[in-house]
Amino acid sequence: MVGKDCVAIACDLRLGLQALTVSNNFPKIFQYGDVLLGLTGLATDVATVSDLFRYKVNMYRLREERNIAPSTFANLVSSSLYERRFGPYFVSPVVAGLDQKTGKPFICGFDSIGCIDFAKDFIVSGTATEQLFGMCESLWEPDMVRLDLDFRTLFPPGIFFYMMILLKNGQLNHDVECSTIMHIICTSDLNFTNASYQSTFATGFDEFFANNLNLLDDLQCPEDLFETISQALLNAVDRDALSGWGAHVYIIEKDKVTKRLLKGRQD
C-alpha cells in the first residue's frame, strides 16, 4: 500500500492444509535489500520462489555492487515467473519499495506466470483478496497524512477545542490549501458545528500554516499508513476462514524499514 513518501506491505501468518491450520508462524514477506516481496499461494512454492530470489538478488548485488531497485526487481520477478510459463510456480507475488533515486513509492503485483500489475494505490493477493479489495478501497486515500494538533496551544485562550485534521492531497510545503482539508473532527466546549467552524476559521488556514511550518514536522505519514494497512488486513482476514492468525507489517521509508508484529485474533 502506498502512502506519502512511504510504502507498506503486510501479510498474515497462517499456514494451512485447507481447513486445518498447520502453523501460525509462517511469514510470507521477504526482504531483499530495500525491496520487499510478499508471496501468497502454495507454501512449497512460496519457499522455493523466495529462496530463488534471494539467490538472484545476492548475485545481482555482487555483480553490480549496489542494491537492486524495486522496478528492476519487479522485472526480474516477472521474467523469472514467465520462464516457468507451462509449469508455473503457484504464487501471486507483491513487490513494494521506494525508488532509490526519486524516493517515489513503487508497488506492483503479479499473477503466477509473471504478468505485472502496476498500481499507484494498493495491491492485494491471496485467499482474502475480495475482502482486502473492499477494505483498501474504503480506507485508502492518496497521500495519507494525519495531523494531530492541540489547538488550545495555538489559538488565543478561551477557545478550547481539539481537532484532528486529515489532509487530503496535502501539499506539504508553504502553500497548504484549505481545499485539501477533508475531515475536521472537533470537540468543543463552544457549540461550533463543522459549518460554523469552517466559516469562522477556514479562511485563516493558509496564513496559519505559513506561520507554523514547524508543525509539518509532526505529520504522521508512516504512522497513518501503518494504521490503514493494518486495519485493512486485520479486518479482511477476519472475514476469511483461510487466513489470519497474526500479521507482519513492514513500513518502508526513505531511511528506514520498520517491521511490526500484530498478534491478531488467534481463532
Binding site: L15, L20, V22, F26, L42, A43, T44, A47
Partner: peptide
C-alpha cells in the same frame, strides 16, 4: 509434507492424526 512445505512448529502431526 510431500509437497516440500516446511514449517517450524512446537508440536506437529501428519495424516489423520493431525
Amino acid at each position: 509434507d510431500y509437497l516440500a512445505s516446511l514449517a517450524p512448529v512446537p508440536y506437529a502431526a501428519h495424516g489423520y492424526a493431525q
